[in-house]
């Protein structure tokens, strides 16, 4: 479970102060699929980065599984991120000199799994996204859609509870975008909580819940509906 209360984030550059998030409050329950929409520059990526503890914040309280994140040091935050959170980006962000196997291996290395377990998990994750035949390929040898699937496999390999996706279909054509969306839905059904930023209102509608961010705040915050209700409806 993820809970944010009155989170503030201010970017200061030379003379300009940007209030990227102001009094931002949100609660995401276990196994939810939340779509985040909003105009460009409204603070969606900032929200996601704070959620993934890649970015610090200037005020408010953020609890991940009842743990106050601001009280953790870098090592503890990294550990938490490694175990509980998977990231997917618009530009895939695969490491270009590593083949698919080694790309998916990255989070598992920091997790400290032994070689056998890593291999098992890598093969499973790549199989889950339908790319198990291409372990030795480099990212540049794949299409955009395939690359994003590798990125998803990488995010999933460590069995995270949360998947944070920042416009995962933004660089893909509509066919590929639908495939990736389908994959995310499957993953969600298998129990992973997903928070996905998107500009595509059609895709957003497929999520359990939509959150609209305007000017650093949740614009029409509806009281939480239990996930299962949404799923059953």
């Amino acid at each position: 479970m993820l809970k944010m209360n009155n989170i503030k984030k201010v970017f200061r550059t030379d003379l300009v102060e940007t209030h990227a998030l102001r009094d931002f409050s949100l609660q995401v329950e276990e196994k939810e699929f939340v779509a985040v929409t909003g105009p460009s520059g409204s603070g969606k990526t900032t929200f996601l980065n704070i959620t993934g503890m890649l970015e610090t914040f200037d005020g408010g309280v953020y609890e991940l599984d009842n743990e106050d994140v601001s009280k953790l040091n870098d090592k503890q935050r990294s550990r938490l991120r490694n175990e509980k959170i998977g990231f997917i980006f618009q530009s895939f962000n695969l490491i270009p000199d590593l083949n698919l196997f080694d790309n998916v291996d990255v989070p598992l290395r920091y997790r400290g799994f032994n070689a056998k377990e890593r291999k098992q998990r890598i093969e499973n994750a790549l199989e889950r996204v339908g790319l198990s035949a291409r372990l030795k390929h480099l990212p540049s040898q794949l299409s955009g859609g395939q690359q994003q699937r590798v990125a998803i496999a990488r995010a999933l390999a460590g069995d995270p509870r949360f998947l944070l996706a920042d416009e995962p279909t933004g660089n893909l054509d509509s066919l590929m975008a639908r495939q990736v969306m389908q994959l995310l839905e499957e993953i969600n059904q298998q129990g992973t909580t997903i928070i996905m930023v998107t500009h595509d209102s059609e895709l957003a509608r497929r999520a359990h819940r939509n959150i609209h961010i305007v000017d650093g705040q949740v614009s029409d915050y509806q009281d939480l509906q239990p996930v299962l209700d949404v799923a059953e409806a």
Partner: peptide, 16 residues
């Protein structure tokens, strides 16, 4: 640096 950003996002600590 971009690769380091990815590694951090995937759970590498500063020390690592």
């Amino acid at each position: 640096a971009p690769e380091v950003g990815v590694r951090r996002a995937l759970g590498a600590s500063k020390l690592e």
